[in-house]
Design a protein around this nucleic acid. Structure first.
Lengths: 193, 193
DNA sequence: CCTACCGATCGGTAGG
DNA sequence: CCTACCGATCGGTAGG
């Protein structure tokens, strides 16, 4: 039987990515040291380099983890047969979860520390990022076609995503609006009656 | 005659602030060293500390310079007798200048590296920042009262400022829309007909 | 504002 | 994944 044969998953690597996401979000990529990361997972300072070639590779892994975790839900929403308005609300709500929920530090790190990536890594992560952005563009275009948005095109998407992503800088869990209420505000703000 | 008596301005200090703003914006606060800054103004590495006690004090000076430079124009717009719609457009346009125009790196640094400030410095800069935010809140409230906005309150301001500030991450001078066109898009996106 | 320097810390590596 | 370490660099300072 293959019962006890472990899959080739690298749990320690996953742990490093998860812990690094938290630290990068709190203190920034440049403000976090390899020793911070190693301490947080109970390793010695040289050991993270057994799993990653460089510190920047950890950063890229954090961002890719966030994107690959967020893409399926977003794809399902866009592929659904919801009307454009409810589809937009669902996408916004799912995105707020990804960006604001406890322990979801991956995409905030992407937003904060994008410029810390080397050009090569940036290019690699950009592939996934493009897929995510395209999903938003599809929904924005559907809203425009339905006459629910005053403005269209790439700039409309950037303005909407800016408003939504900026929540990272002001949302405080347990204070003010919750994620559902913020989603309602976004819909009220952007969609025509 | 008092003709050649210089005013107590510190030109070297101003130069340090301006150059630091550019470097902080390009590479981040943690990614910029005192030696980078000293080199850029033609000083030796210890000399910036003649003008500033710590590296963080330079960061605070950069942010305060941006706010004190931007406040008068914004105050004049808010105090003007423009109707709410045109007033909003004027404020957005002025803000885009502050955030996107060549050499205007102060407020982008504030947006990027806010978390790099010590709590004490953050509190000091926050005083100016509150004044700037309040100007936006005033205009947002006027829009709401005039029935030009679907949503009101502090969250509305944060969504609008998010959309506008996010331009820092995607605007490329000479490519795509210019600042006037972006202001038009923002107005079209948010204001009711 | 320069000279000369310090103690601390950094990302990363060789060898096991 | 640890031990032991390296060369480089960092923010900051004393004395002039």
């Amino acid at each position: 039987m293959t019962k006890n044969v472990p899959l080739p998953v690298d749990n320690r690597r996953d742990e490093l990515v998860r812990v690094s996401a938290r630290l990068f979000r709190e203190k920034g990529f440049d403000g976090t040291t390899i020793r911070d990361i190693a301490d947080a997972v109970g390793m010695r300072s040289g050991s993270p380099f057994y799993h990653f070639k460089t510190k920047q590779d950890i950063l890229a892994a954090v961002m890719e983890e966030g994107l690959t975790a967020g893409l399926p839900a977003a794809e399902a929403i866009v592929a659904s047969d919801l009307a454009p308005g409810p589809k937009f609300r669902a996408l916004v709500r799912a995105h707020l979860e990804i960006v604001l929920a406890e322990g979801h530090d991956f995409i905030p790190v992407l937003l904060y520390d994008w410029r810390c990536l080397t050009p090569e890594l940036r290019e690699r992560v950009q592939v996934l990022r493009d897929r995510y952005d395209q999903l938003w563009q599809d929904v924005i275009d559907q809203l425009g076609a339905a006459g629910l948005l005053r403005s269209q095109g790439a700039v409309s998407r950037l303005l909407v995503m800016g408003a939504v992503n900026y929540t990272v800088l002001w949302y405080k869990p347990g204070q003010g609006l919750n994620l559902d209420q913020i989603a309602d505000e976004v819909v009220a703000m952007f969609l025509l009656p």
